Simulated scan of single mutants.
Amino acid sequence: MSPIAPESVRRVACVGAGVIGGGWAAHFLARGYDVTAWDPAPDAEARLGRLITAAWPAVEQLGLADGASPDRLTVTDTLEDAVAEAQFVQESAPEKLELKRDLLAELDAATASDVVIASSTSGYPMTDMQTTAARPGRLVVGHPFNPPYLIPLVEVVGGEATESWAVDWASAFYTAAGKSVITMERELPGFIANRLQEALWREALHMVAAGEATVADIDASITEGPGLRWAFMGPCLTFALAGGEGGMAHMLDHFGPSLKAPWTRLAAPELDDALRSAMVDGCADAAGERGHADLVAERDQGVINVLRATGRLPRRAGEQA
């Protein structure tokens, strides 16, 4: 098995050209790749063209790679033509398990054996999708966030039949293609970010259904509250700062009992020694060389930057819009 080096990839195939697949195509074009695309819808080419035209001003602001151009897109008549010379394949078909299984098996049969094939699925484990492929070892999940040309995150994970080289290769390729990559150690339905979003979403629905908060209240509670911090510092480090100089250890010791309080409809895990240590050690790893004062300064300046960037703080004298 001798796949091309991830940083040497020049041609990518996008199979499925809806909102997600089209967003991937826009991203890969902006990064200077040649892109072939296929979608069975009769208006796929026109729809994809409109999506890329609409996305291009945004990717220009993000910065184009050398040679990047929408003209490097080719829409093919068949799936086989789309992947014939592809060095990487991104599948973005609708979220229907049998459809995913059949399509991944077709892609496996039509693509050179050393080419990694990634699925944009937002929830299905690769173990469930790779069951009918003849060569499932190079099938991985590459779960993006919408729109893929704008949101950096992609979560990479294999299935039970996926070989480790394919996961490592996909993570390296996405990194070379300008994405922010989380390489997951194990499969998890919904992956990481979707599960966190879903927990927040379900609690929001509960509050609206019970008349406890309005939609406007809920949105403002995030945009004017924790969302300002989450833009640059995730919930774990944010909570660690709530513990002051004692960090996550003090926060857990002080606020840990509130896990049993009815603040959410979700059941809380048992805060045993193993979980406590995992959280404390994890925050220490995430902080790295930054001490408490460094993190406080980073948080404070970050919130100010977000408020100013979103027009909620006046610009300083002489500052350009």
Score class of each variant (00 low, 15 high):
Gln90Trp: 05
Leu99His: 12
Trp263His: 10
Ala105Met: 09
Ala170Asp: 07
Asp281His: 07
Asp168Thr: 04
Gly225Met: 09
Trp230Leu: 14
Ser92Lys: 07
Cys283Gln: 05
Ala133His: 05
Ala309His: 06
Pro3Ala: 14
Gly282Gln: 09
Ala177Glu: 03
Ala86Cys: 02
Tyr174Ile: 00
Ala176Trp: 03
Leu252Trp: 04
Val89Tyr: 07
Leu48Gln: 05
Phe173Glu: 02
Leu79Asn: 02
Gly247Thr: 02
Val167His: 06
Asp77Ile: 00
Val59Gly: 11
Gly142Glu: 01
Gln320Thr: 14
Pro226Cys: 15
Gln197Ser: 04
Gly159Thr: 02
Val116Glu: 13
Pro70Leu: 12
Arg195His: 11
Ala68Phe: 10
Ile4Met: 14
Leu259Lys: 00
Ala242Phe: 05
Gly244Pro: 06
Val181Leu: 11
Glu80Tyr: 06
Gly243Thr: 00
Ser164Cys: 04
Gly32Glu: 06
Thr238Asn: 15
Gly234Arg: 03
Leu259Ser: 00
Ala112Met: 11
Gly288Tyr: 10
Val35Met: 12
Ala204Phe: 02
Gly243His: 01
Gly18Val: 01
Gly63Ala: 03
Thr214Gly: 15
Ile192Val: 15
Thr111Tyr: 13
Ala284Met: 08
Gly67Trp: 11
Gly234Lys: 00
Lys96Met: 11
Asp102Ser: 14
Gly23Pro: 08
Ile222Gln: 13
Pro70Tyr: 10
Glu319Ala: 10
Leu150Asn: 02
Ala26Asn: 04
His250Thr: 12
His143Ser: 03
Leu307Arg: 06
Ser180Asp: 15
Thr131Phe: 12
Met1Ser: 14
Ala5Gln: 14
